[in-house]
Amino acid sequence: MSVEKRQYYFDQSKGMGIIVKTVTRLTVGIVFLFGINVALKGHLVPGGGVAGGGAIALALLSLILAFGKETALKNINRKRITMIATLGMMMFLFLGLIGLIGGNLFSTHFMDNEGKFGILKANIIPLFNIAICLLVGSGVYTIFITLIMLQVRKGSDK
């Protein structure tokens, strides 16, 4: 750990205390991987896109709460995270619209799943889960950081 990082780590004015910072640094990766796992296995075990996206958003929110908003917003700014939310919504829409080709209904299963294995065996349902996971995770995070910025700006006016 470099000197500046060490000074920041022991600084009590930014974020919470050193116990919360250490525990958050250890657990945030596990929560993030758990969210991805729940979202990708949504067609096999209980879970799905909404629960997985919620877990991913929880990991990001605990980063903000423990380390202060400057550290978290340095790497993930608002423009980038809004792009990810839009990507999830467009992916959901186009996956449904591809099924319309050839006079079929909305979200018809268009892939041929014979001879595939693993995640490809269950047609387009894992793809729907990935799209929902992207949308829910980045959407909840966007709402939270926008509310934080509103609060800060209101306090600085007074």
Partner: peptide, 12 residues
């Protein structure tokens, strides 16, 4: 299909 989780199958 080969979706084992019926809840996921119904909702998606």
């Amino acid at each position: 299909t080969d979706v084992v989780n019926l809840v996921s199958k119904i909702s998606l």
